[in-house]
Simulated scan of single mutants.
Amino acid sequence: MRFQNPKQIKSMLCNCAVKNGYQLWFEKNYSKRLLVLCCKGDCTFRLYASWMSIEHNFQIKSLKSEHQCARNYKPGFVNYRWIDSHYTKEILHKQKLTIRQLRLEVIKKFGIEVSISQCRRAKQYAMNIIEGTLIEHYAKLWSYGEEIRRSNPGLTVNMDVLTIPDGRWLEGRKKMIGIDGCFLKGYATGELLCAMGKDARDQIYPIAWAVVCVENKEN
């Protein structure tokens, strides 16, 4: 059997161990060599795989798949990334899935005990993959500003500036300003406040927006 990398074969071995209830052990765990044994001393299970430089894949070279031991699995292979690999879609489509509900689903489906902390890290990891981290989000603000400049020639865009000088929009604006706010749900919580106006063609024009922790007089 051929795999793209050691990570892929380890994931397969973890699934196999959970399904069949065997405790495996990485005797050698290198980037180009992998030797896996059964934790039971008398068991003859043995898997050896290595990297093939010419074929550019990770291959199983030898395998003794039979076990002489009884099912006695302890979730040593299972970590938050393994949980995430099986529940990413559920976390995406069930935004209200709680940590405890996720833990109960893992126990019910796979028959193994996992901790609350493992499930919490799995959900956090899945949401980072789905939505990206907060650092990645805020890093895109500069690209957002550049895209506004590109798509709106002549528009002034200033980052990290609290006061914005009057622009050409003021010359043809309608004398009305709409103010509203909405709550942000996710890892970046708070409230989004926005002030909007209309130009001479009745097009909505964002005057200013800000993310605040609470909607009060000062904000």
Rank of each mutant, 00 (worst) to 15 (best):
F110T: 00
G197H: 05
L92F: 14
S115L: 06
K198Q: 08
Q95M: 13
E215I: 13
Y125R: 15
K74E: 15
R149V: 14
I179V: 12
D202H: 10
I130V: 15
L184D: 01
T156A: 11
E215W: 03
T189V: 07
G154Y: 04
Q101T: 08
L184V: 02
K94W: 11
E136G: 11
S115R: 07
C119I: 03
C182N: 01
G181S: 11
W169V: 14
V211A: 01
E90P: 05
N79D: 15
W169A: 09
H137I: 09
I130R: 14
M176Q: 08
G154R: 06
R173Y: 03
R81K: 13
N158D: 10
V78F: 06
I179D: 00
D180C: 02
P75V: 13
A122N: 02
A139S: 14
C182H: 10
E131A: 09
K175A: 09
V78A: 09
D202C: 11
G178P: 00
P165D: 15
K74F: 12
G181T: 02
R103E: 06
D160T: 02
A195Q: 00
L141E: 10
A195H: 00
F183S: 05
K123T: 11
F110N: 01
R81N: 13
L170P: 01
S115D: 05
I179M: 00
L192N: 10
V211P: 04
V212Y: 03
K109P: 02
A200N: 13
G167A: 12
V214H: 03
M159G: 05
D166W: 06
H137F: 06
K174H: 09
D160E: 10
V114G: 00
L155H: 05
K94L: 14
H86N: 15
L92P: 07
L184S: 02
F77V: 04
S151L: 12
A195L: 03
Q118K: 09
G172M: 02
N152Y: 11
R100S: 15
F183M: 05
E147R: 08
I164M: 15
K123A: 03
Y138R: 12
K140C: 06
V106F: 00
E191K: 08
D84L: 10
G181H: 07
T189Q: 13
Y144M: 04
F183Y: 11
V212Q: 03
E215T: 02
Q124P: 01
K174D: 09
R150Q: 05
L104R: 11
I148M: 15
N72E: 11
P153F: 09
R121E: 12
R149C: 13
C182R: 13
R150L: 06
R173L: 00
D199K: 12
Q118I: 05
I116Q: 07
N128Y: 09
I91R: 07
I148P: 07
S115F: 05
D160M: 08
S115P: 11
K174C: 08
R71S: 10
I91H: 11
V114D: 00
E146S: 08
I116P: 02
C182E: 01
G178K: 00
G167S: 10
E215R: 12
T133M: 06
L104E: 14
G197T: 09
T189P: 00
G167R: 06
I164S: 10
P75F: 08
A70Q: 15
L97F: 02
G145I: 03
R150C: 04
E136I: 07
M159L: 15
C119A: 02
A70P: 07
Q101L: 08
N158S: 10
E131I: 02
W209C: 08
A122S: 13
C213S: 07
A208D: 03
T189S: 09
